[in-house]
Structures are given as C-alpha cells and as structure tokens.
Design a protein around this nucleic acid. Structure first.
Lengths: 329, 329
DNA sequence: TATCCGAATTGGATCGTTCAAGACGGCGAG
DNA sequence: CTCGCCGTCTTGAACGATCCAATTCGGATA
C-alpha cells in the first residue's frame, strides 16, 4: 500500500517547498509558470488530493452546504424537493461544494441542528426550502451571520436575505389566460387558506388574470388544506354551486382530486394543477411547471457569491414557470 | 463575539488537562466519576462541540456517509429513492453520522467520484442503491477495502459484500395469492426483460405462487422496459390474447399503464403494482409496499457494525414487503 | 517506613494544510 | 555603488483534536 500522498510528497517530487504547492492550488498567479507546471505534473503523477479536513482547520471553511430532506408527506409534493435536491447536488458539485443532508421534526429541533452542524462540521451555508411568515429559522441564521439562501421568498420582508423563487402568480396567470383563450369563462380556483405566502400568490395570478379579462371571480374560488380528498370534495362543491367549465388548482394533489370529481362530466371540465409532479405527467394532468434545476443552480450561484465575497451579485432571483399542457387542459 | 470553544477551553474551565476532556468524550469509563461530571458540566456550560475536522485529522475518520441522488427519471420510481434517503439521513443522524450527497452520470464517473470523495473528505462509507450483474462500482470499492452497503442484493455473488434488500418474490407471491384467494385464475404478469435480478425475482414470486396453486402460468406473462406507455400496450395485448382477470406488474409505472388499458372492462380487471409509490396511493392502485425506512435503518446498522468493528453482526438482511390493498385489487 | 502497583492525569508530538514572515537574487533608480 | 523593491520561493508556527509515553498519587504490601 503506497504511503498517503500529502502536500509534502508533492513538494519533494517537484523539488519545491510545501508552501509553493499550496500556492499552486490556491493562488496560481504568484507562482512562476515553469514551477507551476512542474508542481501540476507532480500532482497528476502522484494523484494528489488536498485533504479537506486539514485545509478546513486553517481556513475554517468546509466547502459543505446543508440541505434538509423532509419526510414524504402525501408524497406527491415531495418529488418537488427531490428534484430540487438533485439539481442542488449537481450544481454545488460543479462549484466545488458538497451537499450534506439533515432532517428535523420541527423548527426548534431544526435550529438545534444548525447549531450542531455549524459547531461540529463548520458548514459554510444552508439552503432552506420554503419559509413562512416570521420564520424563526431564518431569523436565527441571520442573527449569527450564517450564509444561507432560501428557495421561496420571505413574504414578510423581501430584502431580509438572499432568495430564489418561482413566480407563482405568473404561472397561474398564464394558466388562466390559456383557459380564457380556449373560451372558458367560469374558471374556478382551489387554493390554500389565506395567509400562506405561496398560496396567496398563486391565487392572485388567477384572480388578476380573470379581472383583466373582464370576468368577475366572485364565488369562483375555494380554500382548503392540501390533499387529494379535499380537492375532490371542493370540486364537487364548485360543480354544484357555480358549474365551472375549468378548475385551476394550487397543487397537483388538489388537481388530482378535482380530476376524480369531474370524471364523466360532458363536456369535460378542464383541470390544471401546479408543480408538474410525476403524478401529473403520469395521469396526463396539465400543470404549471417550475424550473427546479434552474432554481437550484441559482441558489448555488447566490451562495457562492456570498461565500466568495462577490457582493455585487443580485440577492433575489425570480424565475418564470412554464405551462405543461396535457389532455386535461 | 465569544472566543471559539475548544477542548482547551473546557479543560481550563473544569481544571483538568485536555487529554482528560478527550477521554471523557471518547473513553468515559477510564475517568473517575467525579472528574467526569465536572468535565461534562463544563462542556454543557460552554456549549462545547468537538471540531470534526481536527478529530478527523488524527483519527482519519470523518463520520460521513455518501449516498447517490439520481435524476428523477420517469419520476414515479424516483420517490422510492427519496423515501429511502430520508430514512437514511434520520438513522445515520441517530448513529452519529451525516449523509453526503453525490451524483454521477455513469459508472465510470461514479467511481471517479468515489476516489475524489475518499481522497478529499475521507468518507467513512458508501451506500449504493441498486446493483447489477458484475457491477464495476462494488468491485472497485471492495478492491480498496472501502466499507459499503448496498440496498439491493448482488445477484451474482450473495456473499460478496453486506447488503439489505426487500424480498420481491415474497411480495409478488403474496399479491398473487391474494388474487387467487379472490377467485382469480388467469393472473397475468408484466415485468422487465430477463436478466435483471430484481425483475427476475419479482416474476419468480408470481410464477411459483401460480404453480403452487396448480395454475399454469404459460402465456400469461409479458416483458418490457419500464414505463406507463409500455404497461398500457402490453396490457391491451394480454387482454386480446388471454383475457386475464387480473394483472400484476413489476412496477407502479407499468401498473398505471395497465390501469388505463383496463378502463371500462366489465367485470373490472384487477391490477396490482409494485413499490407503493405516491402515485399508486393517489390513484387508488393496490401495490406491493417496501419497508424503505426499515431498509435504510438496517443499512446504517450494517455500516456502523463494520465501521465500529462489530464483525459479528449479520451482513445480509432480507426484509419482507407488505401488500397495500386499494380498490384496484 | 520503604517499596511497589495500577488507576488517573499530564505534557509533548502529531495529523496536513495555510498563514505570516523572511530569504534570495535581479533590476531600476538615486 | 548602494538601496529598496518586486517577484519568487522557503521556513516556522498555528489550527484543534487524539495518541503516546511519562508522571503523579493514594493505598496496599513487605
């Protein structure tokens, strides 16, 4: 078994000092071209890799980013996080960072986990998915000047910290206009209870699009917790009350319920969901699609911007969703 | 800003040496009860956390486990990995390990990633999901004595390395017996092409259950690549050829296709899928359910067994799936 | 009382890297 | 000619933990 290859091994092999090897790695421009070449050859020949633990001891930076993986709730929306995580891993990798997973059952325990991860592993940054009004987690991180980015706007203070989000209102707006263009007028909306930033945003897109088209949205919307059963229940309710010709939903879960409720209507009631989950693709449900890979990439961009000191980079990114048209629309 | 709390800070505060603090952390039994108490109080009072990088430099162990996160392919089966990862993170956490993510487009690049992760981060172990005949990845890892566990049996050499798996044949067997008990006789099976360990296993469960019940399975099965469209096509084919009264599938993707193909048959043809994905739950598809959380937990058990030197622990774990009965069965 | 023993504790060296400071030669300016 | 400066490279120290060998100490034994 060959000895471990350290920076000293490389130095001996290239006939320079340890520090020069270190400079080749971290500040190549201050090393003479010829020397640098010799060192790089030695690195390649020996298969040297910088030991992250040792580096971290001096620099205090771990090149590690933490992201939370949540338990699959109803399992449908979980895939959104899944796809986001995959994009995050890929982009972070390219930027020289690795993604560390953690879980936590509630906010308090999540903050305790932050503390632990920071103290033990000296994590460089956190990526949070979703925030709520007055989120204690972002407050805690901001208090301690821990770099972090959220995927999802901080609805109460847009300038509080860097974030990436997808313009939900634009998505529901586009879906609504698509339905209007197809001749629909009684376009209903099933969303979440007032007060969730994301839900209100998605409803607003539908609401404003109808208004702009001269259609009165009064009576055409319902609110509920997320879930297939709820979607089905409220769709039946809507069918009985206002006989909509199309139903737009704040999530694919709700939309799947809607699909079951409208089965057999003639002419068929159109349904459009939100998130373009695999389930939607599987059953042919039209849905508003979020660019999750792009969102993840921009999160990494923002983080590296903060971590590498490029404070000029923008700190807010709002991406545009697209409409995945399938036979239910 | 308070100074960083190191083992020396704790030592001063508790009026002992650094080594004693270290002993309290790593070998509590050799420290006198009273001293230990004083040190533990100091640790709590100061909020001390051992610096992982420094520890790693001496011990060479990072307390980090790597797992691969794959791109969501057709998105339906992706959620299986998602749930497994969540369980893995939770259990590893409890065992004092953290999960690091990586991705790789192919085997060759995956092995290069192993090399990088081992060299740079000194990872303690890998968890691989799924293996194939003659897998180059497990061979590479085994060659270098890198600890790893696979979720999925190595079909060509069951004793080659530690693994955890779910008994697919038992799952399809149980599903078949359920259908037999309900009076079905012409129970068809749609699976993957011969030669994939997982697919062959699932087919065998169905095949043997039929045989044991005195039913001849000849002509009742079809093989194809995974996918909804394929499932639909082959189900139509089966309906025309042998008029099955029930269809068992090797995946939920195939089963979803089957569901579309049997729509309107009277009496309704039963359909059972495999994996109990969120999609199955959403559309009411009966499916064989794998205990993913349990599988993840056992993976961590096996790894900690190897890492902490308990070579007595079993190295193979075969878990039993259950049947999620829904209205399609 | 002297000696010894083992348990408990101590100080120094070490892991592999980067930081801080200094050494060296050559070059241009005074 | 001398000085200082710049570009280039080298040396010693430090990060925070654990390992190793040495030391202290209370108590049992001869």
């Amino acid at each position: 078994m060959p000895d471990k290859v350290t920076i000293a091994t490389v130095a001996r092999h290239a006939r320079v000092s340890r520090q020069t090897v270190s400079n080749v790695l971290n500040a190549p421009h201050i090393v003479r071209q010829e020397t640098r070449q010799r060192v790089e050859d030695a690195i390649a020949a020996l298969g040297y890799r910088a030991n992250q633990a040792a580096r971290q001891m001096r620099t205090g930076r771990s090149r590690l980013i933490a992201a939370r993986i949540e338990p699959t709730r109803d399992g449908i929306n979980g895939s959104v996080l899944d796809r986001f995580l995959h994009g995050l891993t890929e982009t972070a990798d390219a930027a020289g960072y690795r993604v560390l997973l953690y879980t936590a059952p509630d906010d308090e325990r999540e903050i305790a986990t932050y503390d632990d991860l920071l103290g033990t592993y000296e994590l460089d940054a956190f990526v949070l998915v979703g925030t709520k009004y007055g989120d204690p987690r972002t407050a805690w991180l901001a208090d301690r000047d821990v770099p972090f980015v959220t995927f999802g706007r901080p609805w109460d203070a847009l300038d509080a910290h860097p974030w990436v989000d997808v313009d939900g209102a634009a998505g529901t707006g586009a879906a609504t206009r698509h339905l209007l263009a197809a001749g629909h007028r009684r376009i209903a909306f099933i969303g979440w209870p007032l007060g969730s930033g994301v839900g209100d945003d998605r409803r607003a897109g539908w609401h404003d699009a109808l208004r702009n088209a001269g259609v009165d949205p009064t009576g055409l919307h319902r609110e509920t917790e997320d879930g297939i059963a709820e979607g089905e229940r409220l769709t039946r309710d809507l069918l009985a009350a206002v006989a909509p010709t199309a139903v737009l939903c704040a999530s694919d879960s709700l939309a799947l319920g809607a699909l079951q409720a409208i089965r057999g209507t003639d002419p068929p009631v159109s349904v459009i969901g939100f998130d373009d989950t695999p389930v939607a693709a599987a059953v042919g449900l039209a849905s508003v699609s979020q660019p999750l890979g792009e969102a993840a990439a921009r999160c990494v961009d923002l983080l590296t911007g903060v971590l590498d000191g490029n404070h000029e980079t923008p700190t807010h990114v709002l991406l545009q969703p697209s409409l995945a048209l399938r036979h239910t629309a």
